[in-house]
Design a protein around this nucleic acid. Structure first.
Lengths: 141, 141
DNA sequence: GTCATTGCAAATTTTTTGCACTGCA
DNA sequence: TGCAGTGCAAAAAATTTGCAATGAC
């Protein structure tokens, strides 16, 4: 999602684009595909804005997730990771390597059939999260 | 997984079946399909064994997950939930209701195609976790 | 006796909250 | 001036760890 669209979304929901929010969004934008944790985001933002507080980072991430700009996902490590949400589609899937902990993405969806099945049973699907655990190419030696 | 098989698994891995571990396993067995959190398990075990400590519960759950008896899953609520692992197959999928928080299970797998695709790219699949978020039948009014 | 396991309390880690303060509309 | 937003410090929630005591073989 381009930052411009994020600003619009914040306006729509009556929130301001403050320097702190902007800095956090920039860090996220510069690290697309990195699946950063709040702690990582905090440290990176702190470099360009040394006075920012951890609470602001958490509040901002919560806000951005709340208005649909970010995804907040747990990869079963006891902490959340954040990334931009695709505008219209469901979130993509993740490959988590049990060896090195790397997180890759896959774009294939292929869950239509399964979701059709679920909806047929009366569950209204909003989103999904698929995490595949295994060994990445490097860790298979 | 029948408890008998769990005991075998503990023996194989050189761990004892202590009264505490047994009590925790019983609670889990009596609440199949409930996706209990550590806190919930602790409270239920405490009823039949008032002296048990929270740390023992956490250590036991960690142990059982480590030897493959339990699944430790995050449903993005900031805490883990535990359930028995199916013997051979991957874990089943979950439907989390964004209205009431209920967690249902679905047995369909239907991820073979996607996993084949992933493996074709060199990632060795060990397990997966699919959580579908939406509205359950009750919460759609 | 040995050694895995336990209970307790303290510590850690992650996230949230209270509150006074700031700064733009 | 009003009020959303912020920084800081304290609190809360979830989990882990240190350590002395226990108890099964």
């Amino acid at each position: 999602m381009p930052l411009k669209r994020v600003f619009d979304r914040l306006q729509e929901t009556e929130h301001k684009v403050t320097p702190q929010r902007l800095a956090i969004l920039e860090v996220l934008a510069e690290n697309q595909g990195e699946h950063l944790s709040a702690e990582q985001i905090f440290m990176m933002v702190k470099r360009r804005m040394p006075n920012i507080g951890m609470a602001t980072v958490y509040r901002t991430l919560e806000l951005l997730a709340g208005v649909g700009v970010l995804h907040k996902t747990s990869f079963d490590e006891g902490r959340f990771r954040y990334e931009f949400r695709e505008a219209d589609r469901h979130r993509h899937h993740h490959l988590v390597c049990l060896g090195c902990g790397s997180i890759a993405e896959i774009e294939e969806d292929l869950l239509y059939q399964l979701e059709r099945e679920v909806e047929r049973k009366g569950f209204k699907v909003v989103d999904h999260s698929l995490v595949i655990y295994g060994k990445c190419v490097k860790c298979q030696s």
